[in-house]
Computed example of a mutant assay.
Amino acid sequence: MLLKAILIDKNESIYYKNKQDRTISLIDAVKNIYRDRHTRIRLNLEKIIELRNISTHFITEEYEVKYAPLFQACVLNYTNELEKYQNRDITKYISQDFLTLSTRYEPLSNEQIKMKYPAEIAQKFIQQSNEIDVLNKEYDSDKFSINIAQRLYITRKKKNADFTVRIEKNSENSVAIVKDIKDPSDTHKYSYNNVIMAVNERLNKQNIKLQYKSGFNQYVLNMIIDFYDIKSNPKYSYEHVIGKQHSYTYSQQFVEFVVTEIKKDPQHFVESLKKSIKPR
C-alpha cells in the first residue's frame, strides 16, 4: 500500500494497462519504485516475496530463524521510506518496541532437516537457507538484513568480562580437538547464480572492471568451469543427486579463486579463456 501511495504521489498509474480494474502486484510496484535491481531494499523485498510464494508448497516453520533478519530489515526500511515519502513517523502510532522482531525458534541442523523431511523438501530448504547466508555475506547491508548474534570470547582480564566461568584443571576428563566431517551443504553454499552475483559484487567493491561487454555472466562462468574442470574438484564443487536430478553447488573458495584469476589480468581474462578452450 505504501508503494502504491508513492506511485500515486508521482502521478503514475497503479493499474495494469490492459486491466484497468486491477491494481499492479507487489513485485511490479517494487520494480516501479526501485528501478535499480541492485538496490538493497528491492533485493530484500524480492526475497521476502519469494518466501511468500513458496510458503504454501514448502515448510515455513524452520525458515523463521533464517528470514528474521530480512523481516527486521524490511520493517525498518518501511519506517524509513514512510518518513521519506509521506513525512510520517510511524513511532507516533506504534511503539518502538513493536518494531523490533524476535524469534525464539531453535534452528535445525542440515542433518536434522534431512531426517525430518523428504529428500526433495529438505534439499529445497537447505538451498534456500544457504542462499540467505550467501546473500547476507555478499550484500553486507542493513537494508537487506539485520543480524543479531551473541558471541562469547574468553579473556583473562576479569574487569572486561560480562560474566565469569571456571576451568577445572584437575578434571579426569581429557579432551582433544578432532577434525570434523564437513557437510557439503555447509561448505558449498553457492548456487550457480549466486556465484555470478558474488563475483560481480566483489569485483565492484574492489573497483575491478572485467573487459567484456556483458561483464561477468553465465558465458564467462561456464568457460571457467570447463577450462579448470571445476565440477571434478571437490574443493570447489559438489554434485547433489536426488533421484534422477543432478545439480551442483560451489564453495566460497571457488568464488575467491575466480576473483583472484580475474584480478591477474581483467583486460584479457575472457579472451585468454576463449583461446585456451579447445572447440568441441
Rank of each mutant, 00 (worst) to 15 (best):
K205S: 04
I54K: 15
I6F: 07
K263C: 13
D9I: 04
H188L: 00
Q20A: 13
L99W: 06
F71V: 02
E168Q: 04
E64H: 02
S232D: 05
L273W: 14
I196M: 06
E81K: 01
I167R: 10
I132D: 12
A149R: 13
S174F: 11
L203M: 02
E83H: 03
G215R: 04
T187Q: 07
R37D: 10
E256D: 12
V75P: 10
V258P: 04
H268A: 08
Y117F: 10
T39E: 14
A68C: 05
Q123D: 07
E256H: 00
P107G: 06
N217F: 02
T164Q: 08
H188D: 12
V259R: 05
L99M: 01
E271W: 04
D186P: 07
E271R: 08
L99Q: 03
V178S: 01
T260R: 10
F269E: 12
P266C: 02
R52E: 14
R22E: 15
N194S: 15
A176M: 14
K92S: 14
N193L: 11
I177N: 07
N136A: 00
N193S: 08
I181D: 12
F144M: 05
D133C: 15
L101C: 07
R40Q: 12
S272K: 06
K157M: 11
F163K: 12
E106A: 10
L273T: 02
Y63P: 01
M115K: 13
L26A: 07
K124E: 13
K278H: 13
K205R: 14
K189R: 12
S272V: 10
K274F: 08
C74W: 04
S129I: 04
K278A: 00
I126D: 01
N32F: 13
I230G: 03
K231I: 08
K213P: 01
V178Q: 13
N44M: 11
N204H: 09
D183L: 11
D229T: 15
K66W: 03
Q252V: 05
I225Y: 07
K114W: 04
E106Y: 05
E81Q: 14
R166I: 10
T187D: 09
D21F: 13
D180I: 01
L7S: 00
R37N: 11
T164K: 11
L82F: 06
F58R: 07
I242D: 14
K124T: 01
S13K: 01
Q96I: 06
D28I: 04
K158T: 09
Y16M: 00
K231M: 13
N207F: 01
L135T: 08
I24Q: 01
H57N: 09
E12D: 02
E50F: 03
R42M: 15
N173W: 00
L43Q: 13
A68R: 14
M115G: 06
Q112R: 06
L2Y: 05
A122F: 05
D142V: 04
N110Y: 09
Q252G: 15
H240R: 08
L108H: 01
I230V: 15
S13D: 05
T155S: 14
N136I: 08
H57A: 10
